Amino acid sequence: MKLIVGLGNPGSEYENTRHNIGFQVVDEIAKKMNVKLSKEKFDALFYMNEDFILIKPTTYMNLSGEVVKKVVDFYKISPKDILVICDDLDIKVGQAKIKISNSSGGHNGIKNIIEKLGTSEFYRLKIGIGRPEKKSTSISSYVLEPFDKTQQPIIDKVIIEAADAVTSIIYNGIHYVTNNFNRKRE
């Protein structure tokens, strides 16, 4: 059983922001698979079948770990079967990487998941949002803004490719996809 977690913040005011790219990818996966994340379970919008669970935590980003921990404990999911989809400031817009990392990279949602699970040994699909061009722009305001008009078409394409990669992970395995996806995105 694979657990696919899209990170973001609940509420319409955050809907199309950089920080909600994980939610957008999960929405695209659900659309491609013709399923709905409608059930509210474990403080998340939830969909489950025999192969995978898709969730979008309904807590705020910084509390994502509490949701993931509940699902992992209930379904006895190994950390190696978890894929968390999130934004990454240190990756350029249009780039994405699938990897296991030893740290949160400063991402508060990932930090909370590591803290609650007691391990960093889960996969991340990190989607680049880049850093603000103006040094005076705070990171917290930048991640809560929508992509600009030149970036949006690039992000739309990355969301579709990321959803395809996650679908392939579910059925072909993480190693097959990481070799092909990471190589293609470089």
Rank of each mutant, 00 (worst) to 15 (best):
M1G: 05
K2R: 15
K2P: 03
L3C: 07
V5I: 01
N9E: 07
P10F: 07
G11A: 05
Y14A: 04
E15V: 01
N20V: 06
G22C: 00
F23D: 01
Q24W: 13
V25S: 08
I29R: 04
N34E: 13
V35M: 06
S38C: 02
K39N: 11
K41H: 04
K41D: 01
F46A: 05
Y47G: 05
M48D: 10
M48W: 08
M48C: 09
I53L: 04
T58V: 07
T59I: 08
Y60R: 06
Y60I: 00
E66Q: 11
V67N: 02
V72R: 10
V72C: 00
D73E: 14
S78G: 07
V84L: 02
L89E: 14
V93M: 09
G105W: 12
I110V: 15
N112W: 00
L117N: 08
S120C: 12
L125T: 03
I127K: 08
I127N: 03
K134V: 14
F147N: 08
K149E: 14
K149L: 11
Q151C: 07
I154H: 08
I160T: 10
A163Y: 05
D164T: 12
A165W: 09
T167E: 14
I169Y: 01
I170K: 09
N172Q: 14
Y176E: 15
V177H: 08
N179M: 11
F181W: 12
N182W: 09
K184F: 14
K184G: 06
R185S: 13
R185G: 03
